[in-house]
Design a protein around this nucleic acid. Structure first.
Lengths: 152, 152
DNA sequence: CTCTCTGCAAATGCTTTGCAAACTC
DNA sequence: GAGTTTGCAAAGCATTTGCAGAGAG
C-alpha cells in the first residue's frame, strides 16, 4: 500500500500546495491570505499573529493584523493551521504537519520541547486506560519541570 | 510518623486558618482580602475573578475587581491559591487543596473532570521515564475527548 | 459582476497599573 | 504613625467586529 495523493493534502509541503488545498475548499487566494501561508512556512515554528503581520523580521511583507487573525482562523477551520498556548502570552500559530508535534514546557526555565506526537502515544494509552480519555497535547503543552530543572 | 501541624498549614481547612497563614507571611488582613478567601472557600470549585468580585451570586459581598485580582496574585505567591485555564476564557482560581486536583477537559462536549493528582501519578511516571519531564496538569488541563465523546 | 476578503478603526474581554485615600498593625 | 492595601479610573494586551471599498473568480 503506497501513500495516496489524498493523504498528502492534509499536510502540504509548500505554500503552493497549501494554496491549492485552500482553493479546493472554495476559498479565494488573496495576497493577504497567501502571505500568512508563506509566513508560516518560512517560520517553521509556532509564531504570534503579530510576528506574521510584522513581516517576520523582513522575511515577508508586513500586513494587517486583523486580516492575519481572520486568515489564521480560516486556515484552522480548514485544518491547515493550529495554535498552541505556552503560558499567558499570545497564542502561537503553526502549520499542521507530518509528523505532528506536541510540546513539553518547563515552568522553571521556560524551555519548550517539541516532540513528535507518536512519542507520546504510550502516555496517551495510559491515560485512555485509566480515564477513557483520549489526550492531545497540541493546544496546551505538558507543563512541568524539564530534566535539567527537576530535582534529583 | 503522624501528620504534623506544619503540614496542615499548606492547605488550611477554613477561612480563619487561611487568614492565619497569611498573617504568618507578614500580610495584612483587610476586608477585601478576607473576602477573596471566604469566596474561594464558599465556591469550592475553580471560579473567575469576576465571580468573586460579583459576590458569588449573593454569597459574599461584592467587591472591587482590581483588588480581587491583586489579592488572588498575592494568595498565589503565598501558595494558598492557584489558577487553571480551560480553553480561551478567563483564568479560574481555586484554593490549593489536599487532595490536589488536576483536570481532564473534553474539547467536544466541554466537560471538565477533576481528578485527584495521585490518580495521574502513573501517567506522570511514564512521562518522566520517556522524557525526564515531571508533569503537572494543574495549570493547563489534559485536553482531548472524554469517554463519551471518543470514537469506539 | 458577484461575492469574498481586505484594511482601517473601533470595540471587546481579561488583566494590570497609577494614585490618593483608607485602613492595618 | 508607617507602610500596606484599597477603590476607582485608566491603560494594556490579545483578539474580534463593523463597514465601505478592493480584489478574486
Amino acid at each position: 500500500m503506497t501513500a495516496s495523493p489524498a493523504v498528502r493534502s492534509l499536510a502540504p509541503a509548500d505554500p503552493d500546495a497549501a494554496v491549492a488545498a485552500l482553493r479546493a475548499h472554495g476559498l479565494r487566494i488573496s495576497s493577504a491570505r497567501r502571505l500568512v501561508v508563506e509566513a508560516l512556512f518560512r517560520a517553521g515554528r509556532p509564531v504570534r499573529a503579530e510576528e506574521i503581520a510584522g513581516g517576520l523580521h523582513g522575511v515577508v511583507p508586513p500586513s494587517d493584523l486583523a486580516s492575519v487573525y481572520r486568515n489564521l482562523e480560516t486556515l484552522e477551520e480548514v485544518g491547515l493551521v493550529r495554535h498552541v498556548h505556552f503560558g499567558h502570552g499570545p497564542g502561537l500559530y503553526t502549520l499542521t504537519g507530518a509528523p505532528e508535534r506536541e510540546y513539553l514546557l518547563c515552568e522553571a526555565c521556560g524551555s519548550v520541547r517539541p516532540v513528535p506526537a507518536a512519542e507520546l502515544d504510550e502516555v496517551r494509552a495510559r491515560i485512555r486506560e485509566v480515564f477513557g480519555h483520549v489526550a492531545r497535547f497540541s493546544h496546551f503543552p505538558i507543563v512541568g519541570l524539564c530534566r535539567g530543572c527537576a530535582p534529583d
